Simulated scan of single mutants.
Amino acid sequence: MSTTKWVLDPTHSEIGFKVKHMMFTNVSGKFDTFEATVETDGDDFTTSKIEFTADTASINTGNADRDNHLRSADFFDAAEFPKTTFKAGGFVKKSGDDYTLTGELTLHGVTRTVTLDAEFGGLLQDPWGNTKAAFSINGKVNRKDWGLNWNAALETGGLLVSEDVRFAIELQFVKQ
């Protein structure tokens, strides 16, 4: 079977995350600059090789002061670690359109294996004749596992920023 290359459609993709703030509300953010490629045998994503890169300096929570703090050495240290990467083998089918995706996430100079839940949206031909594939990917990691340890104690107890980071990722790929 021939190898198929899929390139990310960044205008229809988003790398989002949520983190609890003061232990009761979520702060949402995303990376504005990222890229991903996938290679499959034919159209079989269970055989895929996936490579993803995000520019850590492109973090965007909608608040300049918070974003600058996240880029600092307290968190991502974007000057020292300008890229976040994820490399994975194929999706593993659970049932229906539900899959898992396990790969190596490198963040802040640390590489760890993570497993994420993925929903395959299917293949579709757009109005211009391009074949597209869509995925919704969700999961949770503990930011301290990658050395992102900064926090502040609250006077009422608890911490300012949760250790858990939840991903909400929407990806659309174009068959080459």
Rank of each mutant, 00 (worst) to 15 (best):
V161R: 10
T102A: 15
S136Q: 15
T111P: 03
Q125E: 14
V165D: 02
K144H: 12
T11G: 03
F34K: 01
E14N: 13
K5S: 09
T4A: 15
T37Y: 07
T84K: 04
G147P: 01
T53C: 05
A54K: 03
F75P: 15
W150C: 07
L116P: 01
I169W: 03
D65W: 02
D145K: 12
K140T: 11
P10K: 05
T25E: 14
D55N: 14
F167D: 06
V92P: 14
K30M: 12
W128A: 10
F34P: 00
I137P: 00
H69N: 15
I50R: 00
L154S: 09
D65V: 12
D55Q: 15
G29T: 06
V19A: 05
A78R: 04
A64W: 01
T111N: 11
H108K: 10
H21L: 15
T25F: 05
T115N: 02
H108L: 06
L148P: 04
N26Y: 15
L70W: 01
Q172W: 05
E35A: 10
N26A: 13
L105I: 13
T25C: 05
T156G: 07
G62T: 06
K175R: 14
S72V: 13
R166W: 12
H12S: 08
A57H: 07
A133W: 02
A153I: 08
T113P: 08
F24C: 12
A88R: 08
A153T: 13
K132N: 13
E119M: 00
M1Y: 07
T102C: 08
V92Q: 14
S28C: 04
T47A: 02
D67N: 00
E163T: 12
T131F: 10
A133M: 09
E39M: 09
D145E: 15
S72F: 02
A133H: 03
S72G: 13
E170Y: 11
H12E: 04
E155F: 04
F34T: 01
S48N: 08
L124N: 11
N63G: 07
A57E: 03
G122E: 15
D44G: 03
A118C: 14
A88V: 02
T102P: 11
L8H: 05
F86W: 07
R112E: 15
A79M: 02
T47H: 04
T85G: 09
T156N: 09
L123P: 01
S28F: 05
G89A: 12
L171T: 12
K144L: 12
S13T: 06
K49C: 07
F173Q: 06
V110T: 05
E119L: 12
V174Y: 10
G42W: 11
L8N: 07
P127H: 01
G62W: 07
G109T: 13
L8A: 01
G96Q: 10
L171V: 13
L8C: 14
M22W: 04
F31M: 14
W146N: 06
E104S: 05
H21S: 12
D43S: 07
N130I: 14
F135N: 00
T115R: 05
E163K: 07
R71W: 03
M1S: 14
R112Y: 03
P82I: 09
R143Q: 10
A54F: 02
A168T: 04
D126R: 06
A118P: 05
N151Q: 11
F45P: 00
F173E: 00
F52H: 08
T84G: 14
